[in-house]
């Protein structure tokens, strides 16, 4: 009997090389961090069940789900708007999986597991906005895209979910990006090309920021 290993492997396992990338001799203007092995559940309200889902969500998370393009932080999850009547529950450590969420939400909502369908990349640094301006048509100016703002949008013709997390300790903005897993390596290379002139600091993490 063969011994099987079921080691998860990120779509960026090969492409992501931790360390410095791009222009040398300057301080890294962009930090790119991949966050691995998260749970991501798509929650879609059923017809006429918006209010019921809001109630069930409030009971489970202490907050109602975002009904506009926003990301709402709870102690152990982030609820991210992903379209009309739908949102993502992003969490780590098995706290909110299909198994645990279905009993709470599957009456008023349909749930679909997207944990493996996306790659999560966090982008920050003094040149984060300048880099993202090459990839995104969204206005990420501080006043136009404040902390907690979210967008279902496209980068390089690839659908992404983008939201602004809490600022870094040095007060620089943090942008989080969920990209479809099969597109991730391609978009990663595009991001590296866009950021290379600013010098990039690359890492991966098991922790949500």
């Amino acid at each position: 009997m063969a011994e099987f290993s079921w080691a998860p492997r990120s779509s960026l396992e090969k492409a992501l090389v931790a360390g410095a990338h791009g222009a040398r001799g300057i301080e890294a203007g962009v930090s790119l961090t991949e966050i691995r092995n998260f749970d991501l559940i798509q929650v879609m309200a059923r017809r006429g069940k918006g209010a019921e889902l809001a109630k069930a969500t409030k009971a489970r998370f202490g907050v109602v789900p975002p009904d506009a393009p926003k990301a709402v932080q709870t102690p152990d999850a982030t609820l991210i708007w992903s379209g009309p009547d739908q949102f993502f529950v992003l969490s780590k450590g098995g706290k909110h999986t299909m198994l645990t969420l279905a009993p709470a939400l599957s009456g008023p909502a349909s749930l679909s597991d997207q944990s493996h369908a996306r790659v999560l990349i966090s982008i920050s640094g003094a040149k984060a906005r300048t880099t993202l301006a090459k990839l995104s048509s969204i206005d990420l100016y501080a006043g136009a895209f404040p902390i907690g703002a979210a967008a279902a949008t496209s980068m390089d013709h690839t659908s992404v979910t983008l939201w602004r997390g809490g600022d870094r300790p040095d007060e620089l903005a943090v942008f989080n990006l969920l990209v479809f897993a099969t597109f991730a390596e391609s978009l990663w290379h595009t991001m590296l090309d866009a950021a290379a002139e600013f010098s990039v600091d690359i890492s991966h993490s098991e922790e949500l920021a």
Binding site: Q42, M44, R46, Q86, S110, S112, D113, Q114, S115, H116, A117, R118, F180, A181, T182, F183
Partner: peptide
Amino acid sequence: QLTSVSDQW
């Protein structure tokens, strides 16, 4: 409700 799960599996 419809969800693309092409990348999930």
